[in-house]
Lab assay of single mutants.
Amino acid sequence: MTYKLILNGKTLKGETTTEAVDAATAEKVFKQYANDNGVDGEWTYDDATKTFTVTE
């Protein structure tokens, strides 16, 4: 399945996607991606759209 991440960081905004077997796996990938890019904030997940959002 394809999962999407929306980044609403103070210095980085954008979107990315990943292929993962489940939401938990996608979340690990996205949290590492956000961490690597210096984005740390509040996370939400919408199962209907398979979209994670992180907002600083």
Rank of each mutant, 00 (worst) to 15 (best):
T17V: 08
G14R: 13
V29C: 05
L5C: 06
E56K: 03
F52Y: 08
I6M: 07
T49Q: 07
F30H: 01
E19G: 06
F30L: 06
M1Y: 10
E27I: 11
G9V: 07
N8L: 12
D22E: 05
D22F: 04
V29H: 09
K13R: 14
T11C: 06
T16A: 14
G41T: 02
T2V: 11
L5W: 02
N37E: 12
Y33V: 10
T25N: 15
T49V: 07
T53I: 09
V39G: 02
V29L: 14
E27F: 14
Q32R: 12
T55I: 08
L12V: 11
Q32D: 09
T17G: 04
A34M: 07
T51A: 04
L12N: 15
F30T: 00
K28V: 11
E15W: 15
T16M: 13
E42Q: 14
F52V: 01
T44Y: 07
T16Y: 14
K10I: 12
T53E: 06
E42L: 15
L5T: 01
A20K: 03
K13P: 05
L12F: 15
V29M: 08
T49E: 08
T25L: 11
G9H: 10
N8H: 09
T18L: 15
K28Y: 09
T25H: 13
A26G: 02
A48C: 06
T44K: 08
N8V: 12
T25G: 09
T51D: 01
T2P: 07
K10R: 10
L12H: 14
K4E: 03
T51L: 05
G9R: 04
T2A: 08
D47W: 09
T25V: 09
L12A: 09
L7C: 06
F52E: 00
A23T: 09
Y3R: 00
E19R: 14
T55K: 06
A20H: 02
K28W: 13
D47M: 09
F52R: 00
D47R: 11
K31T: 07
T44A: 09
K50A: 08
Y3W: 15
G9W: 06
G9C: 04
T2F: 08
N35I: 15
I6P: 00
G14A: 14
V54H: 02
A24T: 10
G38Y: 08
V29N: 05
A48W: 09
E27S: 12
A34H: 01
T18R: 06
K13E: 07
Y45R: 01
K13I: 12
D36Q: 15
V29Y: 15
G41P: 01
T55H: 11
N35W: 13
K13V: 09
E27M: 12
T11D: 15
E15L: 04
T51W: 02
E15I: 06
T16C: 06
L7M: 15
E19A: 08
T18I: 14
D36W: 07
A34C: 06
M1S: 14
Y33Q: 03
N37L: 06
T25E: 09
